[in-house]
């Protein structure tokens, strides 16, 4: 069997029969690097913006926190798209689901814990109310 035949044979096998440990076709590396560079640029830009609005007073002071929050959310978006490769493409369902899964459970855990602990502190950490009258024996 010639080398070319072997290669063809191998790629045929890849399509029909991908067992764990076998390599998948390589992706276009240059395209990948470009994506990361754009992402890095945007992330740096957004970081710089947040510092800028705080340090230079070209926006109305009470609006600064809102601006920073907006930049932070945009920052998350940039990370998700360029670094974690969340897209709407059909081959991306797993990534999107993984993200939804992570967000859901983090929200449940942190939200739930904050709520529960605050409620318990509210209930339990008071100095005790004046004792009811049955306490006298």
């Amino acid at each position: 069997m010639s080398a070319a035949d072997q290669a063809a044979e191998r790629s045929k096998r890849h399509r029909a029969d991908v067992a764990p440990g076998e390599a998948y076709p390589e992706e276009d590396i240059a395209k990948g690097i470009r994506g990361y560079l754009i992402g890095l640029g945007l992330a740096v830009l957004l970081t710089a913006c947040s510092f800028a609005v705080v340090r230079m007073n070209f926006i109305w002071a009470p609006a600064i926190p809102v601006a920073v929050i907006v930049f932070a959310i945009a920052q998350m978006g940039v990370h998700l798209v360029f670094f974690l490769h969340i897209t709407t493409g059909p081959d991306n369902t797993n990534n999107v689901l993984a993200l939804a899964f992570g967000v859901l459970f983090v929200v449940l855990l942190i939200g739930g814990s904050v709520w529960i602990m605050a409620n318990m502190n509210h209930n339990m950490m008071h100095s005790p109310a004046p004792a009811p009258s049955h306490a006298h024996h």
């Binding site: 709520w115 529960i116 409620n119 318990m120 509210h122 209930n123 339990m124």
Partner: peptide
Amino acid sequence: TMGPGGDV
């Protein structure tokens, strides 16, 4: 039984 209120 360890402290949360009725709502929680």
